[in-house]
């Protein structure tokens, strides 16, 4: 029996998976994943290599089938091959490979035909924005140009859901900015974006919510601003007196994990920072920076702690 709350969530969800599990023989892909991606949001999906990001995406794209669990995408339950549902999804794979002997235009015309699109309106428009020359053969394209081709492929049919796996790899910063503009436009038009990436600054920049996956299981789903540890502060202090002053000034009382690197003492402080600032002010300071941790720092810390726990556990 599905609760009314659950029904409400599923109704609003672009992606809703329950107890999703995939094993490749005896090898674990993902295990018991529960996830809801709401319609109209940009959802970040992060995790280290082998965590299960690609497995999840390949399941959503029906390239592989689950060992157990259920998946609903855009209101339709995925049971086997569902080309009608794929028509509503734009997919950008992590590794882009196309028929190399076709020109960009031939390839995109072929793909447009599969989507039942007439003419090259959107293709020309997106290619122009991404500065992609469609007259060249795919084999002559650089990695960046192949990525642009895949982006045009993913966007050409104005999909309701975009599933993007490492979308900016190979794109120069200028093209990355164009790409994010295009993604935001799609979101503004009501589309949902599921973004898997290693580049955490991208998640910070564009995502509404983020899920962290590790060893095939989801370990955290939250708003980007509410990622565990996001309320901590990083304090970087340079004292007028040179050298490592951790012991001399007893800086471990502020943060037992304080480190000294390249003339700077680095602290992590949770909660109120007044006590820390007061303690630091007891000594002559030449520079002081107080900032929020980046998602990248939290991610690295999270996995460092986890790996350490795992190593100790062995």
């Amino acid at each position: 029996m599905v609760s009314s709350e659950c029904e409400r969530v599923i109704g609003l969800s672009a992606i809703s998976v329950r107890s999703l599990t995939k094993y490749y023989g005896r090898t674990r892909g993902i295990e018991n994943i529960d996830l809801d991606v709401e319609k109209g949001e940009i959802f970040g999906f992060i995790g280290p290599n082998g965590a299960g990001k690609s497995t999840t995406i390949r399941l959503l794209m029906q390239l592989i089938f689950p060992t157990s669990g259920t998946m609903r995408v855009l209101g339709e339950e995925i049971r086997g091959d569902n080309p009608r549902l794929r028509r509503r999804i734009g997919y950008l794979p992590g590794e882009v490979s196309y028929y190399s002997d076709l020109t960009g235009r031939q390839l995109l015309t072929f793909i447009a035909g599969a989507y039942g699109l007439e003419g090259l309106g959107r293709i020309e428009e997106y290619s122009e924005r991404l500065s992609l020359d469609l007259s060249k053969t795919v084999k002559s394209y650089s990695l960046g140009n192949r990525k642009k081709l895949a982006l045009v492929h993913a966007l050409m049919h104005d999909p309701e859901l975009l599933i993007l796996d490492e979308p900016t790899t190979g794109l120069d910063p200028l093209m990355q900015a164009v790409f994010f503009d295009m993604i935001k436009e799609r979101r503004d038009a009501g589309a949902t974006v599921f973004l898997s990436t290693h580049v955490l600054s991208e998640v910070d920049k564009v995502c509404d919510r983020v899920a962290i996956i590790r060893n095939g299981s989801l370990v955290s789903v939250s708003k980007v601003s509410e990622v565990p540890g996001r309320d901590h502060r990083r304090i970087e202090v340079t004292f007028k007196e040179p050298g490592n002053l951790i012991e001399r000034f007893d800086l471990a009382r502020i943060d037992p994990d304080v480190v000294y690197e390249a003339g700077v003492h680095r602290f992590k402080v949770s909660g109120e920072i007044n006590d820390a600032l007061r303690a630091l002010a007891e000594h002559p300071v030449s520079d002081l920076i107080v900032r929020l941790p980046s998602l990248e720092e939290l991610f690295m810390e999270f996995y460092k702690d986890d790996n350490a726990a795992e190593t100790n556990g062995r």
Partner: peptide
């Protein structure tokens, strides 16, 4: 083998077709 499967088999065309 040529890694084109991700592009081809995610098109809105059934595998049988």
């Amino acid at each position: 083998d040529q890694h084109t499967s991700e592009a081809v088999f995610t098109l809105p065309v059934s595998r049988k077709a």
